[in-house]
């Protein structure tokens, strides 16, 4: 594989101190190559968002180093970070986070302007990018007039406008139905494959596994092997085998995220066996 775009070395984040101390991320290392899609999964509270924030230079690690395209970002002073975030990273959020007063076009153009591109040029670029993402007819719509998938595509255009090395996405499909979610994933795939960017996605969504080149399981702030994991057959969530509610099948054991899912599963099976 080629030279990594992006290297995190032994990142650790501690919140609070003394008895209230939480080690949200512990000694995590990760490198992302150009064109690679890394999916980070893990249970709630395992430190996924914290890790993503550190990767995006939004949160200073307690310990560890972060390089982006050979810049040691973790060593930069605070006042240099906005520029790094602006030019090296593109962020995609679960709830889109578009600026409600601006049209789709302006939402994207404003970010180019932040990077010092003139107004007219910025709009031209934004229009082109939105066109590529299939939003050519929606340029002048306000976010409230856009569907979820359209909003997420605007957000993706915004993330890409300054030609970042890495796109970081936190639950990018969580607020979208599965068809639209797949479409967003295909776009992220194109961003990686065709444009050679690194893509790091944090998600609970099992379906994203198909698109990812690498799936990492974060638990208690550390990466763990995926083998200890199973998929809840009802809701599709990844669950840890240990301690999970189970149900015995004909030749396998099913694991569930909660009792609710197991009860639903059992009820359905009963119905299948003895339909009324």
């Amino acid at each position: 594989m080629s030279e990594p775009l992006f290297v995190a070395e032994a990142l650790t984040k501690r919140y609070g101190s003394g008895a209230a101390e939480v080690v949200a991320v512990r000694d995590v290392s990760l490198s992302v190559a150009p064109g690679e899609i890394v999916l980070i999964m893990g249970p709630s509270g395992s430190g996924k968002t914290t890790l993503l924030l550190m990767l995006g230079a939004l949160l200073r690690p307690t310990a560890g180093k972060l390089w982006v395209r050979s810049t040691l970002v973790s060593g930069l002073p605070e006042r240099k970070l906005p520029d790094v975030r602006l030019r090296q990273f593109g962020f995609v959020f679960q709830d889109f986070n578009l600026l409600s007063a601006l049209s789709a076009l302006e939402n994207v153009a404003v970010v180019a302007e932040l990077a010092g591109i003139g107004g007219g040029q910025a709009r031209k670029r934004a229009a082109h990018l939105l066109g590529e993402l299939g939003l050519g007819a929606r340029l002048h719509f306000l976010p409230e007039k856009l569907s979820g998938g359209e909003k997420q595509r605007v957000a993706l255009a915004r993330a890409l406008i300054n030609d970042p090395a890495v796109v970081l996405a936190d639950e990018p499909t969580a607020n979208l139905d599965s068809k639209i979610g797949r479409e967003i994933m295909r776009l992220l795939q194109r961003v990686a494959r065709e444009q050679g960017r690194g893509v790091v996605i944090v998600s609970h969504d099992q379906r994203l596994k198909e698109t990812a080149d690498r799936v990492l399981w974060l638990e208690d702030g550390q990466f763990k092997a995926m083998v200890t994991m199973a998929v809840d057959p009802v809701c599709g969530m990844a669950v840890e085998r240990e301690g999970a509610p189970t149900a015995e099948g004909k030749d396998q054991t099913y694991f569930f995220c909660s009792r609710g899912c197991r009860d639903e599963f059992l009820a359905e099976r009963l119905e299948a066996v003895a339909p009324r």
Partner: peptide, 9 residues
Amino acid sequence: GVLKAIGAR
């Protein structure tokens, strides 16, 4: 906050 995260000063 979003603007700040994206890199606005």
